[in-house]
Amino acid sequence: MNRIKQLFEEKKNILSIYYTAGYPNTGDTIQIAEALEKSGADMLEIGFPYSDPVADGPVIQASSKQSLDQGMTLKLLFEQLKDLRKTVTIPVLLMGYVNPVLQFGVEKFCEACAEVGVDGCIVPDLPMVEYEEFYKDCFGKHNLSNVFLITPQTAEERIHKIDGLTNGFIYLLSSSATTGKNLEVGNTTEAYFSRIKNLNLKNPTMIGFGISDKQTFDKACSYANGAIIGTAFVKAIADGNLEESVSNFMKKFKA
């Protein structure tokens, strides 16, 4: 069974961590994955960097740029992940923009994901119609989940359509915003989270964008199966001892 499915069947209040591959140093990708699993992360989203990340705020833009400047490529990332499954058991997704995938080759990309043990992908600028027509079969063949995003502005009909196309979880954006904005759970956000909860979607949901501490995490978990932390984590590992930074950061959520 796909590791993502299994996780959602077995656990509640899932904590998923995003980080940029090759940041702060090119060789850190696997070490961060191992440290995160050790300190209690339930799922990982490894970002493959892109030169023009329009959905990202300053922190993830900067980590992407640094990683690229240091020589990171998608090809190198798959080499780094070659032995991923020798030490990492939790679900792993790759997250990034569509152009590097296109240049790598969609078929080849799916094969490489399956080979190293990646369980799914999040490609924010890949439209649903394109996915359906050109990617879905390939993803299915390699048992990869594809995760779509929804925002407070996403119409209900479209949410159901997304639910039908997804087979992992749905990424619920707390607001229409680039990554790294703080979550302010006001009445409208709560109404939106409740609205989604009441749709009884077939897929589990994860709340992302703006989760930065235990309080916002718990709040998110009351409406969804868990939450995703990205910017706050990327900031936390910018310097210092990597393992200590990871473990200190994770302690805040596991208290």
Binding site: V98, P124, L149, I150, T151, T154, A155, R158
Partner: peptide, 9 residues
């Protein structure tokens, strides 16, 4: 239209 969901509406 290769855009993130946030731009879709």
């Amino acid at each position: 239209a290769y855009i993130p969901e946030m731009l879709y509406p």
